[in-house]
Amino acid sequence: MSSQAFPAARLSHLEQLEAESIEIMREVITEAERPVMLYSIGKDSAVMLRLAQKAFYPAPPPFPLLHIDTTWKFRAMYALRDRVSADTGMQLIVHRNAEAERLGINPFDHGARHTDMWKTEGLKQALDLHRFDVAFGGARRDEEKSRAKERVFSFRSARHRWDPKNQRPELWNLYNLRKNPGETIRVFPLSNWTELDIWQYIAAENIPIVPLYMAAPRPIVERDGVILMVDDDRFRLRPGEQPVLRSVRFRTLGCYPLSGAVESEAATLAEVIRETFTALTSERQGRVIDRDDGAQSMERKKQEGYF
């Protein structure tokens, strides 16, 4: 956000959100020993990465990016990920859970275990392996009701468990980052951003995002009311299923067989934002993982260390 563009003394809400996120990131790197930024290749990660570049400019962000790979992301996501490291000059660490790889864990055969092993376990492994003590994540409080009371700083035990009964109050902009031996911290610098803020910022800042967020004709099947994209030939079609081309876009991106699309003609960022104003479906509805184990699943995943 160029502040020169609006020199008025009062900051816009996007400028304030930006300044607050930058403040949080700077606070972290002065007190953390080995910080890392979780990079999921989604739009929130894209915004978080831009904010990191701003926070430490002219230095590059003083931490690496970490992608917890499941081998099942959309191809377009891998394409963007592989550009990011070159574009930012930051180190990109890709971690895959070797155990999950060996067992051939996949979203078709293994259901919830797929997410548990690749994402939850994979993240714990990577944090332990590299001894990262603080990890930035792109979660927002507006994503769902249960996140509304999330802290910006969330402490995890040495075994990566979240103790919801023992959270620290967060007063003013005075964050307490002191941790006990073995503890790690998840930091959410986008806590106060809404989905609309994210889109507006991407547009205003011209931030590169995965093209899947924009509508295009894509091969899809519709399964239990969810539109799934057939991104490669590993997709298991059920009897009678036949991929058809339809104009769809994604509101959240994860493993392609677990990410629901919405039908849309919004082929450009401007149109997507317009559609988002009318918000036809709330964001997480498009993501299958939240549904398979009921409304409490997000909370449970978090307690187990999933982001």
């Binding site: 160029s2 020169q4 003394a9 900051l11 304030q16 930006e18 300044a19 403040e23 570049q53 701003k54």
Partner: peptide, 15 residues
């Protein structure tokens, strides 16, 4: 100094 270029002036609330 900011990532968006140097500023001539800045005010409360800005990083």
């Amino acid at each position: 100094v900011t990532h968006d270029g140097d500023l001539a002036r800045a005010s409360a609330g800005q990083s």
